[in-house]
Design a protein around this nucleic acid. Structure first.
Lengths: 216, 216
DNA sequence: CCATTCATGTGAATAGCTTCACAAGTAAAT
DNA sequence: ATTTACTTGTGAAGCTATTCACATGAATGG
């Protein structure tokens, strides 16, 4: 039975990958959990625990081999390959994501675009012709899409997700501010940008320096 | 002494607010923790615990008053007021965020834009003239900016953040894929969109249906 | 070759978060 | 007035995640 890896641990793997890429660029041969921890504001123990659930990659007294560990993490995260991604909804956010280089860098290739707006259908975005959303099921299948990014208004998101699921896609990244229903075998993640601003707002209101003085 | 509220709990408050807005639009007078839980795929107990750390808002046997609780949560999150936000970096992501209506809906008003590109400085985005990043410190102070959104390349992000901190801003939302250093009294949150795609990728590679069959 | 330093990997301990379970309160029906 | 059906708020229990602490191994310098 596979050990269940926690969500936070997976997210930290992304951080480790990013940090290792930097250390690699600076020609580090090895890096210790301590150095990595300092770089990503984590504890050395946590990094060792995280990594140890996938194997023993380090050398005692020396640390981890930068290049090798980076590749190993890429393989664990599945970003050592190319993913076929489609994006639905060519609005503000959608357009930005098509050109977002970080996605490409990590192997996420947006190769299909969909919209329901006649003015957008047929237009060219970064070399991709926008398809009519009416044909989404067929085209997702034809293009063998593995991941779909939803950047449509909340009101229409559920209908689109139902189609996407019906087309056999098993992974969805949702930017619409709504809680979508998907079957158990489909992985759905939400990207809610307001949420982080609200987190800031909460902290400004509740924990600003002035308030501390009043505490018991 | 104030009770420390966990990050996840704060994030869930955002979800509750969103859900309550919907229930309000559908003219619900009251809503139970059970209904809210179903709507947001959480447990009723968790919702009651979350809310109970801020007070007793419900009525036994009846549930929570939708409108009142929504307002109460808005006040807790600090989204019952208007926040003065500046955005630095008018690239793909930056441009999209300027027009992102969810921010405005929750009281986050982007009123200043900065860039270092001469072609962008002076141009008009949604009624805001882009300022030269050289003047950022002075202009942040003049406009009394409370929150800054960073959407510049990773390489220049730290320098900008240093300026922003120097200008007295206490809350920063960072879209650059890099770990930024800020003093303890500044709240920094990172929005890393690749991270969620990598989470999907990890799960596709490690927990897809096919693999389950091989488990012990 | 020995001492010293460094750093991993991991059980054990701790801390933090979520769920359970129930007393207590409310409303509605009879 | 009493019963029934609900639902909150919350200590206690259970579970998960993080940190501690140390045995173990590797490299370096004298």
């Amino acid at each position: 039975m596979k050990k269940k890896i926690s969500d936070s641990s997976i997210h930290r793997l992304s951080l480790y990958f990013r940090a290792l890429s930097l250390f690699e660029m600076e020609n580090y041969e090895t890096v210790s959990s301590k150095e990595l921890a300092k770089h990503e504001k984590l504890t050395p123990a946590q990094i060792r625990k995280d990594l140890s659930s996938f194997g023993s990659f380090g050398t005692r007294g020396l640390g981890y081999p930068v290049h090798e560990l980076k590749n190993k993490i890429a393989s664990i995260l599945g970003i050592d390959r190319s993913w076929r991604v489609a994006l639905v909804g060519i609005g503000n956010i959608g357009s930005a994501l098509v050109s977002y280089k970080e996605f490409m860098k990590h192997g996420f290739q947006i190769i299909k675009l969909f919209d329901n707006d006649q003015r957008k259908i047929g237009s060219n975005h970064k070399g991709i012709i926008v398809s009519d959303i009416k044909n989404i099921q067929q085209e997702l299948k034809e293009s063998n899409i593995q991941i779909v990014i939803i950047s449509v208004p909340a009101t229409v998101a559920q209908n689109i997700v139902d189609d996407v699921v019906e087309a056999g896609v098993k992974a969805i990244l949702n930017f619409a501010p709504i809680n979508l229903r998907v079957p158990d075998d489909v992985i759905l993640r939400n990207e809610n940008m307001s949420m982080e601003l609200e987190y800031l707002s909460f902290n400004l209101v509740n924990y600003s320096q002035e308030d501390d003085i009043e505490e018991v």
